[in-house]
Simulated assay, not measured.
Amino acid sequence: MSSVRMDKWLWAARFFKTRALASKACELGRVDWKKGEMTWQPAKAARDVHEGDMLKIKNDSGEFQIEVLGLSEVRGPAAVTQGLYRETDESKAARAAVVEAKKAIPVYERVWESGRPTKRDRRVMNRLRGRQGG
């Protein structure tokens, strides 16, 4: 096998749960493709993926920049599918920086004693949010 459809490969490499989601991501411009020294181009679901191609993939887990090392049309175990691609060092560093930035954001939550805010608690929250009334 010398090539595989983009949506099949993304599904087989476990970037998306279904082929339909992989196809939709291509349609929405969340997958970019590059071969050799070319510039990045939006990938279509029907585009053929070859070994050595570079891909930029945006999904719920973050933004990946990978090199295609192997081809597969079937979805196998996660340990096997990780051998289909290699993530670049810059991509790993960027995703780690995003995770650290999210951890640095303070979370303001109040744990309610009774499980639900009382009328008095709701009035205090409204005052803090700048809402009138209450």
Rank of each mutant, 00 (worst) to 15 (best):
Asp32Lys: 14
Met1Cys: 03
Lys24Trp: 15
Lys35Ala: 03
Arg110His: 11
Gln82Cys: 00
His50Ser: 10
Gly134Leu: 09
Ser61Leu: 00
Val80Trp: 08
Asn59Ser: 05
Lys35Ser: 15
Pro42Arg: 06
Arg116Gly: 01
Leu128Val: 01
Ser2Lys: 14
Asp121Met: 11
Trp11Asp: 06
Tyr108Arg: 06
Tyr108His: 14
Arg110Gln: 04
Gly29Arg: 06
Leu10Thr: 05
Arg120Phe: 15
Leu71Val: 00
Trp112Ala: 02
Gly83His: 05
Glu87Ala: 03
Val68Met: 03
Lys8Asn: 05
Ser2Trp: 13
Glu113Cys: 09
Val68Glu: 08
Val4Ala: 07
Ile105Asn: 12
Thr81Glu: 01
Glu51Asn: 06
Met38Gln: 06
Val74Met: 11
Arg86Thr: 02
Ala101Met: 14
Ile57Cys: 06
Gln82Ala: 04
Val68Cys: 04
Trp112Cys: 00
Arg122Gln: 14
Glu67Pro: 00
Asn59Phe: 02
Leu71Gly: 01
Cys26Asp: 04
Asp48Val: 07
Ser23Cys: 12
Leu69Val: 02
Asn126Met: 14
Tyr108Thr: 11
Leu71Asn: 02
Ala94Pro: 11
Lys119Gly: 00
Arg5Ile: 08
Glu100Gly: 14
Phe64Gln: 07
Ala104His: 14
Gly29Met: 10
Ser61Asn: 01
Glu109Arg: 13
Glu100Val: 08
Gly36Ser: 15
Asp7Glu: 11
Gln41Trp: 10
Arg123Lys: 15
